[in-house]
C-alpha cells in the first residue's frame, strides 16, 4: 500500500520535472525555430508576423529556398568558400603542429619536458581576443594583412588540441614504439606509422576543436582583412546585416548556413569516430 503510494508520488514528481524541462527547452529553442522559419520565407512575411505573436510567427505560409539562393549567389557565397578554405588549411597545418608537439611531449624523454608542456598549454590558454589587436599590428608589419595565410596562422596553435593528443599518445603502450625502433624506424616514422594510425578519435577531436575555433572567428578576420573579396562568412554576414537591415530573410538564412556547418561537422565526426569529448574539459 505505502509502496504504491510512494511510486505514484515519485511518478508525479517525474511528470512535473519533465514539464519543467519542456518549458526550459522551449525558452531556448523557440528563438532558433523562429530563425529557421524566417530563413524559409520572404522578408515581408517575417515583418508582417513580428507582432502580435501568433502561430503564424513560427510557421511560414509557404516554404521557399529563395533567401538561400539569393544569399549564396551574392558576396556571401564567396565568403563561405573562403571560410572553408581557411578552416581546412588551419586544420591541416594545426594537426601537424599539434601532433608533432604532442608526440615530443608524451613519447620522447628529455629534461624539462613537464615544464615545456605546462608552458605550451598555458600560453595557448590566454584568450586570443586579448592579444588580437596588438597581433594584427604585427601582422600588418609582416605583410600578412589581406592574405589567406594571415587568416590561417593564429588558428594553428591550439593548446587544447595538443593536450588531447598528448593524453591519447600516453595511452598507447610504449612497447609498440620499442618494437618499431628495434626495426630501425626513426622518430618521424614511429609517429607517422604507429601513433597517427592509432590516433583516430583524438585526431578527429583535435581537428574539430581547431575547425570550430576558426569557423566562428569574427574579431580576427575583421582586424586582418579589409578587402571584402577575401572576407570570411561571419564578417560578411554581419556586413550584410548592417547594410540591408531590412532583408531579414537573407540574414536569417546566413545564420542558419553558419550554424549547420559546425553541427554537421560534429555529427559526421561523431559517426565516424564516436565518443567525441567536446565537454571533456574536466578530464
Amino acid at each position: 500500500m505505502t509502496a504504491v503510494r510512494r511510486r505514484t508520488r515519485s511518478e508525479r514528481r517525474s511528470i512535473l520535472l519533465t514539464a519543467l524541462a519542456v518549458v526550459v527547452a522551449a525558452l531556448f529553442i523557440l528563438p532558433a525555430l523562429w530563425l529557421l522559419s524566417g530563413s524559409l520565407r520572404p522578408s515581408n512575411e517575417i515583418f508582417g508576423t513580428l507582432s502580435p505573436v501568433t502561430w503564424r510567427t513560427l510557421v511560414p505560409s509557404e516554404v521557399s529556398l529563395g533567401n538561400y539562393l539569393a544569399l549564396l549567389s551574392g558576396p556571401f557565397g564567396r565568403s563561405i568558400l573562403i571560410s572553408f578554405a581557411v578552416c581546412f588549411l588551419t586544420v591541416a597545418i594545426g594537426l601537424v603542429v599539434s601532433a608533432l608537439a604532442a608526440y615530443a611531449l608524451s613519447v620522447l624523454r628529455f629534461r624539462g619536458r613537464g615544464a615545456v608542456f605546462a608552458f605550451v598549454v598555458i600560453s595557448f590558454m590566454v584568450p586570443f581576443e586579448a592579444i588580437a589587436i596588438p597581433l594584427s599590428q604585427l601582422f600588418s608589419g609582416w605583410g600578412l594583412t589581406n592574405t589567406l595565410l594571415g587568416l590561417v596562422l593564429p588558428g594553428i596553435g591550439n593548446g587544447l588540441a595538443i593536450f588531447n593528443l598528448r593524453q591519447h599518445f600516453l595511452s598507447i603502450p610504449t612497447s609498440y614504439r620499442e618494437a618499431a625502433t628495434v626495426d630501425g624506424a626513426a622518430e618521424p616514422r614511429v609517429l607517422w606509422s604507429v601513433y597517427l594510425p592509432l590516433g583516430g578519435a583524438a585526431l578527429a577531436n583535435s581537428a574539430l576543436l581547431i575547425f570550430l575555433g576558426q569557423w566562428s572567428a569574427y574579431l580576427w578576420p575583421l582586424l586582418v582583412v579589409s578587402d571584402s573579396s577575401l572576407q570570411v562568412a561571419p564578417v560578411a554576414l554581419a556586413r550584410t546585416f548592417g547594410e540591408y537591415t531590412f532583408d531579414f530573410g537573407q540574414n536569417f538564412a546566413g545564420a542558419i548556413v553558419l550554424s549547420v556547418v559546425p553541427a554537421l561537422m560534429m555529427f559526421v565526426l561523431q559517426r565516424f569516430f564516436g565518443g567525441l569529448e567536446i565537454a571533456s574539459g574536466e578530464k
Binding site: 531556448f28 523562429w34 569574427y218 561571419p234 554576414l237 554581419a238 546566413g254 545564420a255
Partner: peptide, 18 residues
Amino acid sequence: LVFIPAVVPIVGSSIVWS
C-alpha cells in the same frame, strides 16, 4: 534543444536577437 543555441555562431544569434 537547450544546447542548440550554442551551435548558432554569435553573429547569427546577434542578428536574431536584434
